[in-house]
Amino acid sequence: MQTAVKVKTLTLVQAITDGLDTMLQEKEEVILLGEDIGKNGGVFRATDKLQDKYGEDRVIDTPLSEAGFVGAGIGMAVNGFLPIIEIQFLGFIYPAYEQIVTHASRLRMRTMGHFTVPMVIRAPYGAGVRAPEIHCDSTEAIFTHMPGIKVVCPSNPYDAKGLLIAAIEDPDPVLFLEPMRLYRSVRDEVPDGKYTVEIGKAKKRMEGEHVTLIAWGAMIPEVMEAAKAVKEKGINCEVIDLLTLFPIDKDMIAESVQKTGRTVVVHEAHATGGLGNDILAIINDTSFLYQKAPVERVTGFDAPVPYFGFEDHYLPTPERIKHAIEKVIKF
């Protein structure tokens, strides 16, 4: 006999709160650190009411010091705690970049596993919400490039909670990117209590045999809209939501692009050095002879993410994606 799992309908940001709540409840060692996460519940309310519930000892408002509290988080992680750190916006993470790439991601290697850093860093990322400048970066590739840290990014409430719990339980540091554009735009049924979405596994959002579309996070709705639009013209797209940006699910990519032979990769980050290039490399390494057209990339431009007055031009749109789909079809 199976007990029915209770579900609730939540937005993506509420699902994150629910995931944090679940793990604060489950593990004494889980501790939240960040700016304005206590009384204020975080600038996006991702930690709403958690301090009331778990106290100032476990949901901690830190001084304004990204390097300081990420560094202190490393010290706590090494000494028995499971810190979940909120960076207010990904664009503000750079002071902590050194702590992340020279310490959090390297300590296991440096000490052959003697000291490890089971830590999660949460950061809202991306443009499209009319936010002030520097609040809109999507610089996942500077983290996926560095060995020793995993990078994940959900696109819906169900995955957000399950992936967050998987990140918290992962023995290594995980950067958890939150598409702020989707924080409140979708609602989804989310199971009560604990469940995980496996790190390293992508999901298909749509099945099709003509073109593979690969994206993640805030680009998923854009890609889905483009896929639906071209379907009317008889082009059937397969949409892969990566979910994990490192290590990428190469098997699902290979399986799909061997079937379709045509691929469009979409990300809002800059093109040069962007993750699209790694996806290209995977296609090259696994599926070169199956390709019927060169892979197209639809990305943000190689310009700093502009003021929001320009962001509709900067961000990949369903129009641009459709154009790329037609290009690989016509090739």
Partner: peptide
């Protein structure tokens, strides 16, 4: 004993965090 801090001063927040962890427990 932590591995030697190589980038200057980066071990200082670690010490603060490890010490804070001791106090918390």
């Amino acid at each position: 004993i932590f591995p030697p801090g190589i980038p200057i001063a980066t071990q200082i927040p670690h010490a603060a965090g490890a010490a804070y962890a001791e106090r918390k427990r």
